[in-house]
């Protein structure tokens, strides 16, 4: 289920997977000034059901989807195993060192602890956009 799709078709896509509706809305709004289309998904399952677009340049995934510990990181691990190497930012509503280390070992580009994520997230997303442009 695609819950939000901001239509700015000429921009590259960043996927946002988070079960919290408020977070999806707030983060989409936060990132809307950037040159990127944020495509939101409420669960790992709904995300896995779709084909990853050629225009995709990155992902933002909540570490504990639906409150299940490390499930977002498991999603990232599955994606990496299947050959998807998009730069990925992990957001964590609750975090501990083993979770952070697991995310980074799964090749996450960054691991950001909530709630103070705004400027870090904007910075990381801008880096992903710049990186994609450089290629």
């Amino acid at each position: 289920m695609i819950s939000t799709l901001v239509t700015k078709n000429h921009h590259p896509i960043i996927y946002l997977v988070d079960h919290q509706k408020d977070a999806r809305t707030a983060l989409s709004k936060l990132l809307s000034p950037l040159e990127v289309t944020i495509k939101c998904f409420a669960s790992a399952e709904s995300f896995m059901r779709q084909q990853i677009s050629d225009d995709a340049i990155g992902m933002i995934i909540e570490a504990h989807l639906e409150g299940k510990k490390d499930s977002g990181i498991e999603l990232l691990e599955t994606l990496v195993k299947s050959g998807c190497h998009l730069p990925t930012i992990i957001l964590a509503s609750s975090s501990d060192i083993p979770t952070a280390v697991r995310a980074m070992r799964a090749n996450a580009t960054d691991f950001i602890e909530r709630p103070f994520i705004e400027h870090l997230l904007v910075r990381d997303v801008q880096q992903i956009i710049n990186g994609a442009k450089a290629h």
């Binding site: 975090s95 060192i97 952070a100 280390v101 980074m104 960054d110 691991f111």
Partner: peptide, 12 residues
């Protein structure tokens, strides 16, 4: 004495 940001930085 580690914390999460320190772990993330080291891994990066």
């Amino acid at each position: 004495h580690g914390d999460v940001p320190m772990a993330v930085e080291a891994m990066k």
